[in-house]
């Protein structure tokens, strides 16, 4: 990876952090409603894995902490922010909100609020890739908490039996909402759990993007090479609560402090400085340009975009232009009476 790519990656991660923190502010101003789950602290995982994937070609799917996965997959950040604002220009036309970002134009197939539901959907996307005979793969990002759903076990089994081209990325941030992993899960090393399904797996540091990229490269090569699914676990930590309504009373200040020292932006920034690729001044300038972009372009777009029309309430429930050959109504000639 050359220096310009390294600089771009650091800027991307800074951008993702600022995007999330700015949406926190908009939430406090009540411009964003509902539930808001922020990705701050886990940026190296989605950024590193998707850097090694073929975004726009491969399918990407995740849970409700989905803004950054969508953006790195190729969804325009303006549209993601407009979705948080519930606007017609949003990724999901204001109908989905924070937890349901979709952009099928880049094969980002959604954020889902049901924990563990994306497992089978991801395997289905992979089944479609295999059926069409393309070299696409499906990448499913979920947290450690999702692995206690039945869908985890059912899907791992089928993905393995059918050798589906799907990469399961487990972002182990140690907490299932507010319950620490060792209090809810018999086997805390998540990568060990898929051994029961004969799926190769590995565990890595999720805070160091270089480690993430190296691990993802191998995992993606395995899956794209037709060898079936792979399960990759990254140890990470969310810096904010599960959602905005989180008391955060279940974690110790000491634990939070230790993980803040392992902030992925800090780790990568220090490395680039040490390698003389960037100076403190360069990083400060990067921060400034990110803040300006978010304020002047992204927030402005979201603020100025129109609301969906209430008259369109029933739109998108079913296919709005159905073919009468399949739908009907039944003609007189088709009636028996």
């Amino acid at each position: 990876m050359n220096a310009s790519d390294q600089k771009r990656l650091l800027r991307e991660m800074i951008f993702y952090r600022r995007f999330e923190e700015r949406s926190f502010e908009a939430y406090m101003e009540r411009k964003i409603g509902g539930f808001l789950h922020l990705y701050s602290g886990q940026e190296a995982v989605a950024t590193g894995v998707l850097e090694m994937a073929r975004c726009g070609h491969d399918y990407v799917i995740t849970g409700y902490r989905d803004h950054i996965h969508a953006i790195k997959a190729g969804a325009p950040p303006r549209e993601v922010m407009a979705e948080l604002y519930g606007k017609e220009t949003g990724s999901s036309r204001g109908r989905g909100g924070s937890m349901h970002i979709f952009d099928p134009t880049v094969n980002f197939m959604g954020g889902y609020a049901l924990v563990g539901q994306p497992f089978p959907l991801a395997a289905g996307l992979a089944l479609a890739c295999k059926h069409k005979g393309t070299d696409q793969i499906a990448i499913c990002f979920l947290g450690d908490g999702a692995n206690n759903q039945g869908t985890f076990h059912e899907t791992m089994n089928m993905a393995s039996v059918w050798k589906l081209p799907v990469l399961f990325v487990c972002e182990n941030n140690l907490y299932a909402i507010g319950t620490r992993i060792d209090r809810s899960t018999a086997v805390t090393d998540q990568y060990k759990r898929v051994a029961a399904y004969d799926i190769p797996s590995s565990q890595h540091d999720g805070q160091d993007i270089d480690v993430v990229m190296a691990a993802a490269t191998n995992a993606i090569a395995h899956v794209r090479g037709g060898k079936g699914p792979y399960f990759i676990e990254f140890m990470t930590y969310r810096q904010r609560g599960h959602s905005m309504s989180d008391s955060n009373a279940y974690r110790s200040k000491e634990e939070e402090r230790l993980w803040l020292e392992r902030d992925p932006l800090k780790i990568y920034g220090e490395r680039l400085k040490k390698a003389k690729i960037l100076t403190d001044k360069d990083i400060a300038a990067m921060e400034k340009s990110v803040l300006e972009e978010i304020e002047n372009d992204i927030i402005r777009f979201a603020e100025e975009s129109p609301e969906p029309r209430v008259e369109d309430l029933n739109k998108y429930c079913l296919d709005d232009k159905p073919d009468p050959r399949w739908i009907g109504p039944l003609t007189q000639g088709e009636q028996h009476g």
């Binding site: 539901q117 959907l121 395997a123 289905g124 996307l125 479609a128 059926h131 069409k132 899907t155």
Partner: peptide, 10 residues
């Protein structure tokens, strides 16, 4: 769910 995921991809 696998059927649903596959249907989203054609």
């Amino acid at each position: 769910g696998i059927g649903i995921g596959a249907s989203m991809a054609g």
